[in-house]
Design a protein around this nucleic acid. Structure first.
Length: 370
DNA sequence: TCTGGGGTCCTAGGACCC
DNA sequence: TCTGGGGTCCTAGGACCC
């Protein structure tokens, strides 16, 4: 989806169309005026720790974008309109667009709130006509635009879906790789993040084409055999992964960054209240999905941004807030609490659906020596 | 007064079992 | 002058993604 959160907000506030708008923070709810219009906050008035989750393309023209600190963004685009995130709305539109696509092509893999992989192998129709149909269905259901890449596999489609944003269609075959993929920066590959990009740059590798030609032995020395081999395959556009409809979540979590850093002793009451709230919310989430959990974890971020986690496996799966809280407190006892804290989180993993027969995945036929 | 919140997958060591 | 080979589960951290 194109600038998803911001685009959903524009459905509600169409008067903001064409303006730089950013989504983020907690307390920038527009105020309804007596004349029926809204008073919107400007980015320059923002004080606090938030980051931008989404920016309209007009805002991006100022150099602001996702994950940028809002204080920094305010310097680049002080007059941009600031709106708080409404995740309920986004989840609603997320369901709508996914359902609309599913009518045309049922084989779908979820990639988060605003993105999916679609297997079009067995769907009738010409490629370009299919892309147009999908975009139209999404628009009819939501009033929102999306961008589509159609290629032989997930890796290439992910790259291509980004090449013609917003409202774009990119169709590409293996033969097009040298011309259209190899000039791109390695960072465009899903799975090459900031760390790997920096390491590759230090080896003189900037583009996907350079990566494709890189010496395998050198890559192995720097990245290990497994990742090195994946890098080379990726650079050649090779990706055998299937579009998999995952039925169950692996984990669910709730976390929060505090308005100011808190100390385990001085701010004991405040922290305790936050922990209780997080456990309550997590329990709600689990119950809504019908999950129970056997592993409860806590996550702390210290004021120096170091992250630590502790987890405990409980003898019987839990879903209620009190049991989660108890497990979380067990974990907290095992973590150093000298430094001030910036973030606290609680996670439930090893999820099960009570009553459902324990589902063991079938062993995959090995291809190891083929 | 840089740096959110929700996830997935991988690695690696240790305990423990047969 | 020893201490195999296979497996599972648990824990902690890290890279990466939306």
């Amino acid at each position: 989806m194109d600038a998803f959160f911001a685009s959903v907000e524009l459905l509600r506030y169409p008067e903001l169309r064409g303006q730089p708008v950013v989504i983020g923070g907690r307390n920038a709810t527009p105020v309804l005026q007596a004349d029926g219009s809204h008073q919107f906050a400007r980015l320059r008035t923002y004080v606090g720790r938030g980051v931008i989750t989404t920016a309209t393309y007009e805002a991006r023209a100022f150099g602001v974008g996702s994950a940028m600190g809002m204080m920094k963004a305010a310097k680049l685009a002080p007059d941009a309109i600031l709106l708080p995130a409404n995740f309920e709305d986004y989840r609603h539109y997320s369901r709508l667009f996914k359902q609309a696509v599913a009518v045309i092509a049922p084989q779908i893999e979820d990639r988060g709130i605003d993105e999916i992989f679609i297997d079009l192998t067995d769907v009738e129709g010409e490629t370009d006509e299919l892309a147009a149909r999908i975009k139209q269905a999404v628009f009819d259901a939501t009033g929102l635009t999306c961008s589509i890449g159609i290629t032989p596999n997930k890796l290439l489609s992910k790259i291509c879906s980004d090449l013609n944003k917003p409202n774009g269609i990119t169709i590409l075959g293996f033969d097009d790789i040298p011309e259209r993929i190899w000039p791109l920066n390695v960072r465009k590959v899903n799975g090459i993040g900031p760390k790997a990009t920096a390491k590759l740059a230090s080896l003189g590798i900037e583009t996907i084409g350079q990566l494709a030609r890189a010496d395998q032995g050198m890559l192995q020395d720097y990245f290990g055999a497994h990742y090195a081999s994946w890098l080379t395959q990726a650079a050649h556009g090779i990706d055998q992964r299937v579009v998999a409809n995952r039925a169950m979540s692996k984990s669910m979590s709730r976390e929060t960054t505090f308005e100011r850093d808190l100390h385990a002793r001085q701010d004991r009451e405040t922290l305790s209240g936050i922990l209780v709230t997080l456990c309550d919310r997590l329990a709600e989430d689990l119950k809504r999905k019908g999950y129970v959990s056997r592993t409860i974890s806590i996550k702390l971020r210290y004021d120096d941004f170091q992250i630590v986690s502790r987890n405990v496996t409980v003898p019987e799966p839990v879903a209620d807030a009190a049991a989660i809280l108890q497990a979380a407190r067990e974990c907290l006892k095992r973590v150093p609490l000298q430094r001030k804290l910036r973030l606290l989180g609680v996670r439930a993993s090893t999820l099960e659906v009570p009553g459902a027969a324990a589902h063991k995945p079938l062993p995959v036929q090995g291809d190891l020596f083929a």
